[in-house]
Design a protein around this nucleic acid. Structure first.
Lengths: 107, 107
DNA sequence: CGTGTAAGGAATTCTGACACG
DNA sequence: CGTGTAAGGAATTCTGACACG
């Protein structure tokens, strides 16, 4: 489920590399986590690990910030976008369910 | 060209994480690099960075090693597999070239 | 609010070497 | 040949705080 890009969501990138990839400073990256915009995983000893998806999200955050959008507003937009995506997923899976029921398609 | 998996080849994973992902020790991972089985990138200060493709390769290496195959033999097999893949790429691109010439398809 | 920085400590990684076999 | 380990050093990351604004 939702594993179309197996490597995109795997959290394995350290903050220094994320910093290079995004152009953001580690300080900024940690702050956006503090504001609940991203959720890296932690290794046993506490170092943060990010996914490529996190990197993409951070780039979007950076774009919004450059336009002066505050982190609060960015969070609202992200939540909204997520809800929309989830609704579409539900719609699709319901459609699939109907089709399967109709045609008796084995998964 | 060959960028079907944009994130698969990007070298961003530190050796400790690769160790967890593969079950190999950092010592083993460095040794296989020494034997020219993998080629991580280096950060400015010298720390190794691996891609998910490297991780996959390392798992294959681990499988071969468990069967007692020596690194030399593993390297030969890998070179052979690479050559085969390249030949297929060339064949495909030539075929594409012919088709394009025949039907005047714009790229 | 968002970001920089100095501070002290902890965890990571690096290399070259010795060991075993 | 392939891998473990102790050694010393360098680079990375972490947190909490003060600063500016």
């Amino acid at each position: 489920m939702a594993s179309e890009y197996p490597y995109k969501s795997k959290k394995v990138i350290p903050i220094g590399t994320v910093s290079e990839l995004t152009g953001l400073t580690p300080r900024q990256i940690r702050y956006y986590e503090d504001r609940s915009l991203i959720y890296p995983e932690r290794s046993e000893k506490g170092t943060r690990k990010y996914s490529f998806l996190d990197v993409e999200t951070l780039v979007e955050i950076a774009d919004h910030r450059e336009e002066g959008v505050q982190t609060n507003e960015i969070r609202r937009e992200m939540v909204k976008a997520t809800r929309k995506a989830n609704k579409e997923d539900i719609r699709k899976s319901m459609l699939r369910g109907q089709l399967n029921a109709h045609f008796r398609i084995r998964k």
